[in-house]
């Protein structure tokens, strides 16, 4: 595992070299001894090479919010694959039917830009309606079904191309 973090579009490498009571880290080529002592759910004391710093931290998925040295940082961890083990549609951009059914509504056409989690279609199966949403932001490259059409489980409903 090669931990990589991103701040404002800039990538940084944080490599732990040793993980005892304090971790020996290599951050962007600089080695330092660092440890974090939690004093509350979101409050901790960071010790870096012997000097202490008050830290506030919170995490939302792979995003860490850190308040340190008088400013707040938003740091993305690029190693997490949180939320992608949904089993249904994968990162290949093929939107697959989670079950056999009938298309009730189609919200997009080829060429449409879609946001992550945007509804793409509504399908009905076993008297239950399910929204098909975009697993990522991107552009619709193909729609393989039409309104009222039926499909089998696993059928490709549409194709999505991830935004570059």
């Amino acid at each position: 595992m090669r931990p990589t973090h991103r701040i404002d579009g800039q990538e940084h490498r944080v490599t732990p070299l040793r993980r005892s009571a304090s971790q020996l880290l290599e951050v962007d080529g600089t080695q330092l001894e660092a440890s974090l002592r939690w004093t509350g759910d979101h409050e901790a004391v960071l010790t870096v090479n012997g000097s202490e710093h008050q830290v506030h931290a919170a995490q939302d998925g792979a995003t860490l919010f850190v308040h340190l040295d008088g400013r707040s940082w938003r740091i993305e961890s690029l190693n997490g694959f949180a939320g992608r083990m949904d089993g249904g549609s994968g990162a290949d951009g093929r939107i697959r039917a989670p079950m056999p059914g009938v298309v009730v509504e189609i919200d997009v056409r080829p060429g449409d830009a879609v946001a992550e989690n945007q509804r793409l279609a509504l399908i009905e199966s076993m008297k239950m309606q399910t929204e098909i949403t975009a697993p990522m932001a991107g552009t619709v490259t193909a729609v393989h079904v039409e309104r009222g059409g039926s499909f089998d489980r696993g059928a490709a409903l549409m194709e999505l191309e991830r935004n570059a």
């Binding site: 940084h12 901790a44 931290a57 860490l64 940082w73």
Partner: peptide
């Protein structure tokens, strides 16, 4: 930046 990254990693 280095400190913030260290804190983020540890947190």
């Amino acid at each position: 930046i280095v400190r913030a990254l260290a804190a983020a990693h540890l947190a």
